[in-house]
Computed example of a mutant assay.
Amino acid sequence: MERSMPSNKFSSAKFAIGHKVRVRFGIADPDYPDIPIGGWAGQVADLEGGDPCFYLVRWNRQTLNSMAAIYRKRCERDGLDMMQMWLAEHDLEADEGGPVNIMQPTEIQTKPLNMKNQDDRIRLVFGLTHDDPVPEVKTDTLRAYRDYLAENLSFPFEAWGKKNPGRFFTTTQAVAVAGLGCDDEDERLDEHYGLICEIKIGRKRGDAPLADLEVKGLGAERQLVDDYRYWFFNWRC
């Protein structure tokens, strides 16, 4: 995803497309104020006139190779293009050549997890920070999610087994979720079906994927299971 840009192309500009430029020291990334970008160098790929003019700078290889890992991680998480950036004219100077002297972050400020944000609630499951990407569904992450749910869900709870052709329920049924099995039962972990839980339908007992269940009501169990289902269906490899 490209960063936002101005819209007027008709004012005079100090730099032309193709000019080599460098970011002035003391400048920070517009999206991440704790990431200094002084010394980053590249070539003007586009420009937008105005007051001030803005330039799309495509970073050179030295700059790309010197970017901090935390910056790469944030760009990946937020869908930003780390190959280029729009910057104001007063943030730039002509690149006269010479070695690239890139400022590195020294005071990283990681945002606290926001429990109103579903992705952040999932990061909490895995003990991650806001800067970390949400992990993919694999055996080890399923195991970690099972342990988290086992500690935080109150069993039994009522749910609907949702009709889902090709999976476990051919009609929507009311079920009681009795548990997630024992900690060492890896046969209840499946990268295709996810966590397999114990259910009761009337007097009958059985197993079903937790991802095929929708919790009744609006309690804590509803949010916990909805978050798990969101993660499972969106981060499968």
Results as ranks from 00 to 15, higher is better:
residue 205 R to T: 14
residue 131 D to G: 01
residue 19 H to V: 07
residue 16 A to D: 15
residue 60 N to I: 10
residue 111 K to H: 11
residue 96 E to K: 12
residue 81 D to S: 10
residue 11 S to M: 06
residue 66 S to R: 09
residue 89 E to P: 02
residue 226 D to E: 14
residue 132 D to L: 03
residue 49 G to S: 06
residue 197 C to I: 07
residue 13 A to E: 05
residue 1 M to K: 11
residue 182 C to V: 07
residue 12 S to A: 15
residue 114 N to W: 02
residue 186 D to A: 04
residue 8 N to R: 13
residue 176 A to K: 12
residue 54 F to E: 13
residue 143 R to T: 11
residue 39 G to S: 04
residue 173 Q to T: 14
residue 18 G to V: 09
residue 130 H to R: 08
residue 200 K to M: 13
residue 61 R to I: 11
residue 127 G to F: 01
residue 149 L to D: 04
residue 163 K to L: 09
residue 96 E to A: 14
residue 27 I to C: 03
residue 105 P to S: 15
residue 87 L to D: 02
residue 87 L to Q: 06
residue 219 G to I: 02
residue 231 W to C: 00
residue 21 V to Q: 04
residue 127 G to D: 07
residue 49 G to V: 02
residue 97 G to L: 14
residue 197 C to L: 03
residue 103 M to W: 07
residue 111 K to I: 04
residue 91 D to H: 12
residue 38 G to K: 06
residue 28 A to Y: 14
residue 172 T to A: 10
residue 234 N to R: 14
residue 147 D to M: 06
residue 2 E to C: 04
residue 103 M to G: 08
residue 200 K to N: 12
residue 168 F to C: 11
residue 176 A to I: 06
residue 169 F to R: 09
residue 152 N to T: 13
residue 62 Q to G: 02
residue 9 K to I: 13
residue 231 W to P: 00
residue 7 S to L: 13
residue 196 I to G: 03
residue 22 R to E: 15
residue 19 H to I: 03
residue 42 G to R: 08
residue 157 F to M: 08
residue 180 L to N: 07
residue 161 G to E: 11
residue 163 K to N: 08
residue 58 R to H: 12
residue 228 Y to W: 06
residue 234 N to V: 05
residue 58 R to S: 13
residue 184 D to W: 09
residue 164 N to S: 09
residue 218 L to V: 10
residue 160 W to N: 14
residue 184 D to Q: 05
residue 174 A to I: 03
residue 178 A to S: 15
residue 190 D to T: 01
residue 217 G to R: 04
residue 190 D to H: 00
residue 138 K to A: 15
residue 206 G to N: 08
residue 209 P to H: 01
residue 14 K to N: 05
residue 45 A to G: 11
residue 145 Y to G: 02
residue 3 R to E: 13
residue 34 D to H: 11
residue 161 G to V: 11
residue 7 S to K: 11
residue 56 L to R: 11
residue 177 V to P: 01
residue 23 V to T: 10
residue 72 R to H: 14
residue 6 P to S: 15
residue 23 V to S: 05
residue 77 R to S: 01
residue 107 E to I: 00
residue 212 D to C: 08
residue 19 H to P: 00
residue 52 P to S: 04
residue 101 N to K: 14
residue 160 W to A: 10
residue 233 F to T: 00
residue 189 L to E: 04
residue 36 P to F: 08
residue 40 W to R: 07
residue 14 K to P: 00
residue 208 A to V: 07
residue 32 Y to I: 12
residue 86 W to P: 02
residue 23 V to A: 04
residue 31 D to K: 10
residue 73 K to G: 00
residue 143 R to N: 10
residue 51 D to C: 08
residue 1 M to G: 15
residue 205 R to D: 12
residue 122 I to P: 00
residue 178 A to M: 15
residue 211 A to E: 06
residue 38 G to H: 09
residue 27 I to V: 13
residue 140 D to L: 07
residue 169 F to M: 04
residue 79 G to S: 09
residue 113 L to H: 03
residue 151 E to D: 10
residue 230 Y to L: 11
residue 106 T to M: 06
residue 27 I to D: 03
residue 107 E to K: 09
residue 150 A to K: 13
residue 165 P to H: 09
residue 102 I to D: 08
residue 210 L to C: 02
residue 155 F to P: 07
residue 148 Y to N: 09
residue 81 D to Y: 04
residue 69 A to E: 14
residue 199 I to N: 10
residue 130 H to L: 00
residue 83 M to Y: 13
residue 28 A to T: 15
residue 196 I to Y: 03
residue 176 A to T: 12
residue 147 D to N: 06
residue 180 L to Q: 05
